[in-house]
Design a protein around this nucleic acid. Sequence first.
DNA 1: TAAAAGAGATACCAAATGGTATCATATATA
DNA 2: TATATATGATACCATTTGGTATCTCTTTTA
Lengths: 114, 114
Amino acid sequence: MELGNQQAFRALADPSRRAILRHLAEQDMTIAEVASNFEMTRAAVKKHLKILEEGKLISVETRGRERINKLEPMALKPVSDWFNFFNQFWDKRLSTLEKAVETHASQNNKPTKN
Amino acid sequence: MELGNQQAFRALADPSRRAILRHLAEQDMTIAEVASNFEMTRAAVKKHLKILEEGKLISVETRGRERINKLEPMALKPVSDWFNFFNQFWDKRLSTLEKAVETHASQNNKPTKN
DNA sequence: TAAAAGAGATACCAAATGGTATCATATATA
DNA sequence: TATATATGATACCATTTGGTATCTCTTTTA
């Protein structure tokens, strides 16, 4: 029943890890490359990467002696979706537009009951 | 430059606190009322509420001897917006629908260039 | 093959976290 | 006024967290 993914939420709680994700959005990177963007030891960065991996927010490909860290953006989607529950409270305008999206979407899928 | 709000991200990292937000979305509640929904002491719940308050995700109104905790849904918006950066990576379909939304939106606002 | 480079594995540390228990304070209410 | 109720405030505890330092292992490369 728990929407989203606890490990992902946990991973996103730290600002360094969010920054790492933004960097990995630009390009895949080795641990050392990620570390070069921060004032942190490589070991510290590796810990962050491990937590991001546990949240499935990144995947890792071993290539020779290197570990290529790669963003897994789809893992962010369920987290983002958790927030959609609260759309109803945000602005009415957004809510209205989302209904339009639903309607539009149903043209390519089977109609939903709402 | 830091999009979103660190205190809010931190507050959302804990599953109990996310559950509390869902409850408060239903109705405003006193500390004791919130606590009645969990197998936690009132003190523990109060700590969570304090962290949610620090993240500005809830506001508190003192009424007599009671403290009414109220959801502040707008505070979730900047956090949700942080994820929008990654929209570009999600599925093309969503991306397409969002363009449709933009187009639709422009009917009620001034026209956009797309 | 020897040396350098990238990463893994531990061990360690201070601070933050999530929780409890206990006592104090303020406010309704019988 | 006495008492019950709702909350506040501490103090305490075990675990997690974010970080460093150090040593080892593996893979390149001179």
